[in-house]
Write a protein that binds this DNA or RNA. Sequence first.
RNA 1: GGUGAGGUGACUGAGUGGCCGAAAGUAACAGUUUGCUAAACUGUCGUACGGGUAACUGUACCGAGGGUUCGAAUCCCUCCCUCACCGCCA
Length: 423
Amino acid sequence: MLQTAWIRENKEEAIQRLAIRNIEAGEIIERVIQMDDSRKNKQLELDNLLAEGNILSKEIGRLFQSGKKSEADQLKNKTLEIKELSKQFEEELHHIENGLKDLLLTLPNAPSLKVPKGKTPEENEIVALHGKPPVFENQPLPHWELAKKYDLIDFELGVKITGAGFPVYKGKGARLQRALINFFLDQAIRQGYTEIQPPILINEDSAFGTGQLPDKEGQMYHARDDNFYLIPTAEVPITNIYRDVILKESDLPIKNVGYTPCFRREAGSYGKDVRGLNRLHQFDKVEIVQISHPDTSYEVLEEMRHYVCSLLEKLGLQFRVLKLCGGDMGFTSALTYDMEVYSAAQEKWLEVSSVSNFETFQSNRLKLRFKENQGKTSLVHTLNGSALALPRIVASLLENNQTAKGIVMPEVLIPYLGFEIID
RNA sequence: GGUGAGGUGACUGAGUGGCCGAAAGUAACAGUUUGCUAAACUGUCGUACGGGUAACUGUACCGAGGGUUCGAAUCCCUCCCUCACCGCCA
């Protein structure tokens, strides 16, 4: 959620930045300011009224103590009037506040000025390209056929147990999953991240804090009896650790990493996008989260991006880095890089990581602040990124590394796997 | 799930209707003292939203929400959570 004060003080910038998302925000921003004005007025009215009431109450107390009961009773009548009026003012204030909040909730984060304008994924900016596509003698098999051939992943079995999009990993397929998780976690720890194992069910407040609610409840699985949601990403529980927290400046930056399964309903997806591992309802992901001083958050973003790239390099995958255009960026992000690996048999790029700076969009909702050395409290910047999401990594590892003898595993994984080849 | 006891500032903990935004202690920060460390002493030490150039000042907040009252941290109701015991159990 954007901050009202920021919008007031940076009206032009807000309009300019939201325009990157193709949002004509002038009118809505005027409305925000207008509503904020009337909020202030109403609050002042209410405060003054309550102040008057407080003075009278104290006076009544004094009169009672000095035995002047009839005078006290007279004053009581006055306070009753005040009480009634203040109730009315309070309602009006709440009404205005809620209206303002609803309005602010419709506004996505203001993109950084570095974000390219654009509407569709085609307009994302390719900022880097690493590695070369593998060369094959024969037409390579797509990963779902390889998975079947080597008995690594059983999609039909998952349908039996749960439904489509819940694959069962078996044998070396399961071991590959476990190896990747451990590899990613160990790498992150070496980078200075602290490993976290959070709950994978979250309450409403947490879902609101990171921006899943309101609006995106359709994307999450919901445990109705307890009103919990299954996490769509570890970002939610790990960032919410710091909800309603005031950090010390010396605590920053905070670097956390966590492995969790992730659950997404993916309502409305269909067709070849969902084939094999391309889009699942349950998948595994290692997520990195940083809480940063506002002054350095873009340096942190670059650091995170390079870290994710280093993982892909170690796995020997060809990949590219996209800077998302305004139209393709998530609601809560100010700047997002996507990493995509090349999937040789499908001949397409698969998104395996998304690294974003949310600036104060999340921290404003989370009330996540830090106390500056001069004693002032300000909102921190939050950032996160996948490092990495497993299924598409597995897909491209299988497809890109297939040989006549079997699927050759990258060197870095061998200590984790305990085998070198899937055959 | 049942019964009982509780939820107060970073922490410990006092406060059972007005003098309480809240004692005291600890921790933290600044200073004095000091050869250094430590100790001692002095001061500062909640958040949010307002008003004011500022000094300063108004309002709200003692788990959350409602209620009683002129007045609630304090009384009542509902919910949530924590602890103890019992039950169940990886």
